[in-house]
């Protein structure tokens, strides 16, 4: 029993890590008022560029770095269209998802099905790895788990909610005109936060192909980008909650694997459906239970609306 729980948690930290990175990036974008539906495509692009990079240099850290850069560049394209040109955010997001998925699968065709030439090695932390369950599930993993599950959520939380800069950033997402009047550079903050969100999604893709799976195949992202977008909504746009949600979905994914490995009397296809079905359930049930309008309050007020300086 302990072994099963340890196994589930081990997979959950890996599978959930992909979601956590992408969701943290989406928190950044949505906090400044931009709804980025392109996460799925950015993740695919990050994943494939990481795989291609490690084929050449065989170093997962370089692969991760390239994936972050690719995510940043495509995130800048998205930000250019939505923030500078104020194009429709939904449309640009869908375009980025379709473009990214197609481009990644085209570029990665000769790499499909092969294992990654380098992946993040597991490192057992002395003493901590002896703790029951968590020792093996968390403290014996690749070093990025500490970045994803501890450093990043708290750093972003601190940045957004405990610093002056964070107040400015949130003001841009709540009321860009007021922020502009207060001298905050609305367009610049929006642009760079959305671009940074893209970098996070790219990192999520690299974590998928260099740590969790680790290999590349067509459509390997399989909707994880969309689950990340949904996560941000029911995490109330808060980084720490988003990461907890990612862990929960990591557990659900892991349960599916355990079910298949242990021959549960449920067809594997139905086990694979669980993350998607649970995402929908979690989008609907809390809204049913919540008081009228509770969800609306938590969303940044200017989410999804472009900012025109001349229309103050």
């Amino acid at each position: 029993m302990i072994d099963i729980i340890t196994g589930i948690l081990t997979t959950a930290f890996l599978a959930g890590g992909v979601l956590a990175l992408a969701a943290l990036g989406e928190v950044l974008a949505e906090r400044v008022g931009v709804f980025n539906l392109g996460v799925e495509g950015l993740m695919a692009l990050g994943g494939v560029s990481a795989i291609i990079t490690v084929t050449i240099v065989q170093n997962p850290w370089v692969g991760m770095l390239v994936a972050i850069l690719v995510g940043l560049i495509f995130g800048m394209f998205f930000a250019f269209a939505t923030v500078l040109l104020r194009a429709n955010q939904t449309l640009c997001g869908l375009a980025l998802t379709i473009l990214g998925t197609g481009l990644a699968a085209s570029v990665g065709r000769s790499f499909a099905g092969q294992p990654a030439r380098a992946s993040f090695p597991d490192v057992a932390i002395p003493y901590l790895s002896d703790i029951p369950v968590l020792g093996r599930a968390f403290f014996s993993q690749n070093l990025l788990v500490y970045v994803i599950w501890i450093i990043l959520p708290f750093a972003i939380n601190f940045l957004l909610f405990k610093t002056r800069h964070g107040i400015n950033v949130r003001a841009v997402g709540e009321n860009p005109s007021a922020a502009d009047a207060a001298g905050i550079k609305v367009i610049a903050i929006r642009f760079w936060y959305v671009a940074a969100g893209g970098a996070f999604a790219g990192a999520g893709g690299a974590y998928l192909t260099l740590a969790f799976v680790p290999s590349w195949s067509d459509e390997i992202t399989g909707g994880r980008g969309w689950i990340a977008v949904a996560l941000v909504i029911f995490a109330g746009f808060r980084p720490t909650q988003a990461v907890l949600g990612a862990l929960f979905f990591g557990v659900i994914t892991a349960l599916g694997f355990v079910g298949q490995a242990r021959n549960w009397p449920v067809p594997p296809a139905f086990l694979s459906m669980m993350p998607y079905v649970f995402t929908i359930v979690f989008m609907i049930v809390p809204a049913m239970l919540a008081r009228e309008g509770a969800r609306r309050i938590s969303a940044p007020a200017a989410l999804g609306t472009p900012f025109y300086r001349d229309q103050r």
Binding site: C92, A95, L96, L99
Partner: peptide, 13 residues
Amino acid sequence: LALTGLILFFVAI
């Protein structure tokens, strides 16, 4: 699919 995404992107812009 990639070309489709590119067209969508350009239409949005």
